[in-house]
Write a protein that binds this DNA or RNA. Sequence first.
DNA 1: TAGATTGTTAATCGATTAACAATC
DNA 2: TAGATTGTTAATCGATTAACAATC
Lengths: 217, 217
Amino acid sequence: MTNAETSVSKATISRLPSYLRYLKGEAGKGVEYVSSAALAKDIGASGVGVRKDLALVSSRPGKPRYGFEVRQLIVDIEKFLGYHRWTNAVVVGAGKLGRAILSYEGFENYGINVIAAFDAAPAKVGGLNGKPVYPMERLSEIAAQNAVKVAILTVPLHAAQEACDSIVSAGIGAVLNFAPVHLRVPEGVLVKYEDLAVSLAALCGECADQIGIDQKK
Amino acid sequence: MTNAETSVSKATISRLPSYLRYLKGEAGKGVEYVSSAALAKDIGASGVGVRKDLALVSSRPGKPRYGFEVRQLIVDIEKFLGYHRWTNAVVVGAGKLGRAILSYEGFENYGINVIAAFDAAPAKVGGLNGKPVYPMERLSEIAAQNAVKVAILTVPLHAAQEACDSIVSAGIGAVLNFAPVHLRVPEGVLVKYEDLAVSLAALCGECADQIGIDQKK
DNA sequence: TAGATTGTTAATCGATTAACAATC
DNA sequence: TAGATTGTTAATCGATTAACAATC
């Protein structure tokens, strides 16, 4: 528990990526300093909250009258979030979504190396954008060789549990699951559900609420 | 504020989809009753928490000795989350990810109708899996005709702000943004960031933390 | 009945907000 | 200096947990 990350609340950690996005946008425009108030306003948070969060992760304090140094802050947040410690990942399920993720180039900035995809259907096996697609049988072997820590699960619903079992028995301890099913995993294995439909539905819900509120005014 | 949804905490709402996934899994196995303890254990939450959440959304109370009626609970939660009120959505950006989303069939269960995609590049315009891909110029027209409420933004990073502007001026009030950029939008427009790399990196972070904890034991 | 499970009230915990002194 | 902005301490707010009575 002396670890810095364990002393920072989950709520804070969940906000850091938005700070990072905003800061990178400002950095791209050549802005050197950003005030907590400006950051908060654009993000839709409170200034004090932002300052508290930044106090926990920034290596140097903000300067009164100026604010926080943009470039330094970006480095600090990225370091804190572990975007510098590299992790190997694989995609399991080479359907449309799986292939889109395999060829997505945005992972590098986050310290993630998606090395290959796996699929049960031989027709889909082969190469894709320079990254190999292997048959499922080779998952254990290749995961072990490359110290793969995370699997991105993009198989159809009915195949998800079985594929998940293969992932677990390949010794991979974390799964980002895009299939809208509850997965059974042994203790110690992390599963994060990434359900596009749920995200979208939640947004629709907020949207409807807001319209409701607006109409009452 | 007499609206039922506004009286339920965001924390509760964010847990409902996981309850739903679990319940559907049990329903598929023919299970009729589920106890709050069983649900909580599998989800990784507390029994009391689950009961409190369910008390807010379920139309009938749980039965002592039995638990909650699975099928009824599914209906209640779906109703509460608004999966029955239909919403039209469009995809903006017909790249790999955009096309994967356009042809994804899992949205129907959530009351979401993805009607079409739009892309600036004429080469990508045409049909896909029975759903049309239009040029960007027609966004306003088609959005208005179909009362589109939400746009899913899947264009490359540098094109995101411009595409977002088009979405906003087409009168669409909510954006699910897959581009890892901070978007500037006028007040009243909702933006939800869905950054695959951030999700994955967060999982890697948790994974690393857990290994750290394990090693200390 | 006995026991499992629910639902609720009170206590704890954590996170956000408010107030204000410190600083460039 | 005056004013903007930070950082921190105290107060509020909300959510989770603990304890226990109610119920089938």
